[in-house]
């Protein structure tokens, strides 16, 4: 597959269809591949794709590198299922134009959470990581482990229903279609069934770990405000203290700001240095958005993002009777 991927990138560049391809390359550390920008076919052999390619490359269109799209460069980009949803969302949010980007889908079997790998390695340094189908081999100085991939996957990937891109120009291999769903939010429902006191306590416990480093925000493909609300001071709606009320409100508002925009890629959770189960809130919001507005983020180029839209006959069960 890697060969196909390199060939495809090379051909796009050679044919002049794109000036630049964004993809993944092997990183200096074994567990994390690194984003790479390829501008000629000679460099295409750097490209790789495996379960260490967690980075959502669409951030290069929205974050500080917005100029990539604003310079009207023609860009090719490799996407997993979640990445393609980001891309679609960003197009509906006018951050880039569909015609300016060549989307290359890659078949995704999930990306790993390095913490889970380290846990398996019981703290020993991992020097080599290789994947063969559903099995992963981890090697260190004095050990070698063979682990089913599933045990290492990021939480977000475990509940992922749309693994492959649905919007693409090329696809490496055969894309799997959205396969319907069982009950993707059963964990959220379980949590909902707890008492308010219990939920408050658990959330408190979880979020009191937060050190307000904003890694979750910085890595999020949907967070691209020039100045984040938390850094605004006219007014300073919420404090920057680590006091639980400030922390909690930060996370509540952050989740409202990505309502109908979160593609559930799990980047935030993987980036969190304090290991906070951030996805709980994301997925709760995503569940409401899907159930109430019938909107699946980033799956339809012609649909307005959920929070930029409304229907007159919407469920309003939360309004006092």
């Amino acid at each position: 597959m890697v060969n196909e991927l390199r060939e495809a990138a090379g051909k796009l560049l050679d044919d002049g269809k794109v000036d630049l391809v964004i993809g993944w390359a092997k990183g200096s550390l074994p567990l994390a591949s690194t984003p790479v920008f390829i501008s000629s076919s000679d460099e295409a052999d750097q490209l790789v794709f495996d379960s260490t390619c967690g980075n959502n490359l669409t951030v290069y269109f929205t974050k500080d590198n917005k100029k990539i799209s604003r310079d009207r460069k023609k860009v090719g980009i490799f996407v997993k299922g979640c990445d393609s949803r980001s891309l679609v969302l960003n197009i509906t949010e006018k951050q880039l134009k569909r015609e300016d980007v060549t989307i290359i889908g890659v078949p995704c079997s999930g990306v790993i959470d390095t913490r889970k790998v380290r846990r398996k390695a019981e703290g020993r340094e991992v020097l080599e990581y290789s994947q063969d189908g559903d099995t992963v081999t981890i090697k260190g100085k004095e050990f070698e482990l063979s682990v089913p991939l599933e045990e290492l996957l990021s939480n977000a990937c475990l509940s992922c229903l749309r693994k492959d891109a649905e919007e693409y120009d090329l696809f490496i291999g055969e894309p799997r279609k959205f396969s319907g769903e069982s009950d993707p939010y059963s964990d959220i429902e379980e949590y909902e069934n707890l008492s308010a006191d219990e939920r408050w306590e658990r959330m408190n416990e979880e979020y009191s770990k937060c050190i307000r480093c904003y890694a979750c925000r910085n890595v999020c493909p949907s967070c691209y405000c020039n100045v984040c609300f938390v850094d605004q001071n006219d007014p300073q709606w919420i404090g920057k203290t680590p006091e639980i009320t400030d922390t909690m409100i930060f996370h509540i508002i952050r989740n409202l700001h990505i309502a109908g925009r979160c593609v559930e890629c799990g980047a935030c959770e993987r980036a969190c240095p304090m290991d906070i189960r951030l996805l709980y809130l994301n997925r709760k919001v995503a569940k409401e958005v899907r159930e109430r507005f019938g909107s699946d983020t980033g799956t339809d180029l012609d649909q307005k993002p959920a929070m930029a839209d409304f229907r007159e006959d919407e469920n309003q069960d939360f309004i006092m009777g």
């Binding site: 939920r199 409202l256 929070m307 939360f318």
Partner: peptide, 16 residues
């Protein structure tokens, strides 16, 4: 309404 439809369940979810 759409805004509140997300806010209210979310607030309840965190235990408000």
């Amino acid at each position: 309404r759409r805004r509140f439809a997300v806010l209210k369940p979310l607030l309840e979810f965190v235990g408000v």
